[in-house]
Write a protein that binds this DNA or RNA. Sequence first.
DNA 1: TGTTTTTTGTACCGTCTCGTATAAAATTGT
DNA 2: ACAATTTTATACGAGACGGTACAAAAAACA
Lengths: 222, 222
Amino acid sequence: MVQKLVPRRGRPRAYDPDAALARAMETFWDAGYAATSLDDLSAATGMNRPSLYGAFGDKRALYLETLERYRAAARAALKETLAGDRPLREALRHLYATALALYFSGEHGARGCYLIGTAATEAVLDPAVRAALAEALGEIDAAIEARIRLAQRQGELRADADSAALARLAAAVLHTLALRSRAGEQRAALEATAAAGIDLICGRPAVKPGSRRHLRRREGSS
Amino acid sequence: MVQKLVPRRGRPRAYDPDAALARAMETFWDAGYAATSLDDLSAATGMNRPSLYGAFGDKRALYLETLERYRAAARAALKETLAGDRPLREALRHLYATALALYFSGEHGARGCYLIGTAATEAVLDPAVRAALAEALGEIDAAIEARIRLAQRQGELRADADSAALARLAAAVLHTLALRSRAGEQRAALEATAAAGIDLICGRPAVKPGSRRHLRRREGSS
DNA sequence: TGTTTTTTGTACCGTCTCGTATAAAATTGT
DNA sequence: ACAATTTTATACGAGACGGTACAAAAAACA
């Protein structure tokens, strides 16, 4: 990653670009894009304004780069948690646990998902942000759908289930965790909701603890 | 509602406070709280800045009032769509259809839910916004849970299902619709996701169209 | 008609905003 | 040691920002 092989010609930069990007992301994450000033970013990264400009361009370009950075991290997390070496239930449990750990990692309290906390607001009026958000959501859907199809091939889930629809609902659980954590809900409540979502998606209906007698299911009325 | 009974003493106000509040909300809805300036609000409402100040207080107080207005509308919509005069499936279908109609009603394209589009961003650093958001989400959960319990009493849903957990997952479908519409997803895709969510919650598994042979369900692996 | 009361419209203030110009500092090459 | 190159640091400028003072306007009261 670090290509410091041939030393550059002039004065060496006093910052690590990727670390600065991470700090900038932290700042946007708490306050949102619009409420974060260049002074805030300068203070968070330790870079003064001209250096910020030279490294990333203007505020919006910097923000778009943080979105790409977050997407790359999310991609890696999806690949790791949804690996095919364990049952689908375990994979989803791992996915939701990893997400909650991230959503609750803020210094100023829980802050949820970076995309939902910052990009969702800008998405209406900024096409680039909207595109990044839509692509990120699509990647999550696709990764979960691929894992569900694997579970279907392995006989964990009935083969005629709509894997795409189920994946989008599994992603919906992720979305609600992100939103609710940002709204201040307790982590234990979100863990319970994640577990209930897994039960619903993987085939066991949500049942009040203490009254799970038999697991057959009523059919819908229509 | 209108108490114009006894005419006030001084010069009559040239605006309708509630209509102005609605216009202000439209403005926040598109751009978010932080990116909306008082000039934007002045232009949208037709009120000049001193009038805005006299009527609502500062920008934040005005925003908090729009949140209350939205919550009141949401409360009314929940009551209407979740009425007990039809099956749960129909009630949820009506709820999601009403929500989608709202989420796609923006002038600058779909904008999703007002709370998710604006309040979620401010919630981390503004306790009042966070409280309003949390209470609004709680009201939605509670309304859906009450409707689910009714369905259980009427035998539509098995009585030992965890109504609170199911309600939070039904709300999660609402949250994902709000987010995805703001991300630019097509309305038809969201309608399909809503239908799949109803199937999952009310008891019929999501099945690929064209292969719904029998409706029995696999059990979870654990 | 004149006084009182409330709202409107304009103009303004201090502050913060983003972005940049400019010079000093720190390195490589010769 | 000196020139060339790149980054840093300070400082600045034009404009937008939130919020308010003040006088004109429009109504009810006397």
